[in-house]
Simulated scan of single mutants.
Amino acid sequence: MKRYLLLLLPFIAFACGKQEIKEPLEYKGPLREVENMEMFYTENDRVKVKMLADLVYEFQNGDREFPKGIYLEFFDEFGKLESTLTANNAYYFKDQDQWRGREKVEVKNIAKNEQLNTEELFWKPADQRIFTEKFVTIRQQGDVIYGQGLTAKQDLSDYVITDPEGELEVNE
């Protein structure tokens, strides 16, 4: 019997040893998940922006991810629809108050009948500006302009293409 006890003693001593305490893992995923969201941004009791998204993840730092895309409508001071923006994927950076749209980004100016297409676009709501360093295509009435990089008003009423290409009709 003593022989068996001596053989078990190392296993018992090992089992009673210090156990390593592990630090808990910090969760970095979304705190909230919203489906079929419809949100309105207003100024002075007037709707300025309408937002639709199928899925939204909100994180602890205030950032938001829109993995199934986003649709925005921008209105003028009279409530008239000025422009729209769609993207297959979007992200809001709270600390910068800046949005990023990716994958088939499209901006339409309703009044001017113009359309911007690119693969990535940033929007600063405070400045009401959009910008990108990626390749852009702008379709106007009868004209198509290509270029690398763009800065513009969010309604596409005024824009500058950094490195433009394309042909334009000029009436003399």
Rank of each mutant, 00 (worst) to 15 (best):
K50P: 04
K50C: 04
K50Y: 13
M51V: 03
M51Y: 05
M51D: 04
A53D: 03
D54P: 15
L55W: 13
L55G: 09
V56Q: 15
Y57P: 03
Y57C: 02
E58L: 07
E58P: 01
E58N: 01
F59G: 04
F59K: 09
F59D: 11
Q60D: 12
N61T: 06
N61M: 10
R64I: 04
E65H: 02
F66R: 02
F66Y: 04
F66N: 04
P67E: 10
K68N: 13
G69I: 07
I70P: 08
I70K: 15
I70T: 04
L72I: 09
L72V: 11
L72C: 05
E73W: 13
E73Y: 02
F75G: 04
F75P: 00
F75C: 02
D76T: 06
E77F: 05
E77P: 12
F78I: 07
F78M: 10
K80D: 11
K80C: 03
L81P: 10
L81A: 02
L81E: 03
L81K: 13
E82M: 15
E82Q: 15
S83G: 11
S83E: 07
T84R: 02
T84D: 02
L85M: 12
L85A: 12
T86A: 00
T86R: 07
A87W: 09
A87V: 00
A87G: 07
N88F: 09
N88T: 10
N89D: 13
Y91L: 01
Y92F: 02
F93K: 12
K94W: 03
D95S: 04
D95N: 12
Q96W: 02
Q96K: 09
Q96F: 00
Q96D: 11
D97M: 03
D97E: 13
Q98M: 11
Q98W: 09
Q98H: 10
W99I: 00
W99H: 01
W99Q: 00
R100T: 11
R100V: 09
G101E: 00
R102Q: 14
R102C: 08
R102A: 13
E103G: 15
V105H: 04
V105Q: 10
E106K: 13
E106S: 12
V107G: 05
V107I: 08
K108C: 01
K108H: 12
A111Y: 09
A111R: 15
K112A: 14
K112V: 06
N113R: 02
N113M: 06
E114C: 10
L116G: 01
L116H: 06
T118L: 07
T118V: 08
T118M: 02
E119Q: 06
E119I: 07
E119N: 11
